[in-house]
């Protein structure tokens, strides 16, 4: 007797290849949140140290510090990854608690817009100091 085809998964082969669940979004969001979280562990520790170190420093000292390549790159990485992590996290919070469709869409658009704008403002400021 030939073997019975295995039909215990009610998903099309295409659906399985795409790897997307019922949310049609897959694991990209989850993975990005974990990846940015991991990167933020050392970056946050560096940022706390920096804030403590430069809490009473002069404007010139902060300028000199951010003009050297390594703090410049670390600050850019911190800003980019922080705001990416923030918009991912805010999205989850909004999707969990705001159920009315227009309010949900508006909140999502607003939070992502603000994250992008703040990130760009920070990046431009850091580059302006560095160059």
């Amino acid at each position: 007797m030939s073997e019975t085809p295995n039909l215990d998964i009610l998903r099309s082969p295409l659906g399985r290849v795409r790897g997307l669940g019922s949310a049609h979004a897959g694991s990209a969001h989850w993975w990005a949140q974990r990846l940015t979280a991991t990167a933020l562990v050392p970056l946050t520790l560096w940022f706390i140290y920096s804030v403590m170190r430069f809490s009473t420093a002069s404007h010139q000292a902060v300028h000199d510090w951010l003009s050297s390549p390594i703090p410049l790159v670390l600050m850019l990485a911190l800003v980019a990854i922080t705001f990416h992590h923030l918009q991912l996290g805010l999205q989850v919070v909004i999707e969990d608690y705001v159920h009315e469709e227009p309010a949900k869409t508006a909140s999502l658009v607003l939070s992502k817009t603000l994250c992008w704008l703040l990130a760009l403002v920070c990046v431009v400021s850091v580059l302006k100091i560095g160059f």
């Binding site: 951010l66 800003v79 703040l118 403002v121 920070c122 100091i129």
Partner: peptide, 12 residues
């Protein structure tokens, strides 16, 4: 992050 943004903008 608004405070951090302000601080960076002010420094620039």
């Amino acid at each position: 992050t608004l405070l951090m943004t302000w601080w960076l903008v002010a420094a620039a």
